[in-house]
Design a protein around this nucleic acid. Sequence first.
DNA 1: CCAAAACTTAGGGTTTTCCCTAAGCTATTC
DNA 2: GAATAGCTTAGGGAAAACCCTAAGTTTTGG
Lengths: 212, 212
Amino acid sequence: MEISVGILDDHEMILEGLATMLSQSETIRVHGCWTHHANCLEDLKKQCPNVLLLDINLKNANGIELCGTLSKTYPNMSIIAVSNYNESSFIKNMLRSGAKSYLLKNTSREELITTIQTVYNGERYLPRTVENILLEDSLGYPKLRSSIPKLTRREKEILIYISEEHTNAEIAEKLFISIKTVESHRTNLLSKFGVKNTAGLVKSAMNAGLIS
Amino acid sequence: MEISVGILDDHEMILEGLATMLSQSETIRVHGCWTHHANCLEDLKKQCPNVLLLDINLKNANGIELCGTLSKTYPNMSIIAVSNYNESSFIKNMLRSGAKSYLLKNTSREELITTIQTVYNGERYLPRTVENILLEDSLGYPKLRSSIPKLTRREKEILIYISEEHTNAEIAEKLFISIKTVESHRTNLLSKFGVKNTAGLVKSAMNAGLIS
DNA sequence: CCAAAACTTAGGGTTTTCCCTAAGCTATTC
DNA sequence: GAATAGCTTAGGGAAAACCCTAAGTTTTGG
């Protein structure tokens, strides 16, 4: 039984690496590789693979949202999230968005192939390391627990402007609202991220992948 | 003529990908792969390859400093920097530190092999894309120019404290200096990074790898 | 369809950051 | 061994961020 696999990743080096690694397996056929999600979406319309390896931190797209869309549109295609991030929040978000597995980029070839074969049958499969992250999280070492807060539309907008070094006055002008309103959103952002000031906010938001 | 190549990269996926890509070439032999720089250093003492592929953003080490050390210790080994960062400052820093080339992670296999063969002869070689980045920089689109500033001892200390969400007053107390002094260092940090406020400072410092 | 929850809006007052200026100290160089 | 450049130290005043409170608006759920 041959499993067709598609790969979507910004980095061609990882893309070629993954493709080469997989081509050595006799049970796996690389169906397509994409460095841009737009191309990927187009090709999937024509024919979609059994399994999709999906990078989380794409340059021009939100990997989590993309995963949700794809898993709904193509329920028979199993999605494996591939990421650098080892925070439980990312893992949980991807699994909630329909991913069947979550691999870190330091995964070995054996583990990669095992994962593909398992999710091909529709089962969920997580490597030990990833399972341990979730376990530790659910056991609740509260300090390690750093879930990504859910931001409102306004908060996201303002967070971006903050990261672009705009002052509250400038943001207020852009959004046609009062400075005081911007300050409120800003205070809420601090509270949601559990930080004390702008320095902590920017740091946390960057680590969460919300800004870059 | 066989070229021996070593690879140091945190991410096993990239490591295996690179190794597999290279093993297809008949002129190249993969001499060793390391995910930790400590292991790499030990093995190099025994026998060092002709060419080393070196990831810049290692978890537990500064890739730029490591490159400088290695190129001095093993002048006959050609170092190729491998990185996600396409900022000219990174490229220049790596070349100044003795790297013979600088590849982005979206480099194709052909380019990778060409690069290895060229630097093996001791020559410097940069792909078009990377050369263009340096060219644009030297032509001086000043906004794109973002080199990593050299920080003094005090500035580094204070930058860390800022990233840990401490106020100027708290930092002053820790360092037994006046608040006003801390503010001065802070202003100098803004100036050195070419940013307008704390948000920009933290963002730039994170992108420069000075804080995390 | 109405109550509860969540989001957006905003003011008053305090704290912190930022800008400009500048003096004393330290290391390097010629 | 004095000149020069760079680092550390601060102050006064202006701007921005932060905290507390709260009203109007939209969304959600029984």
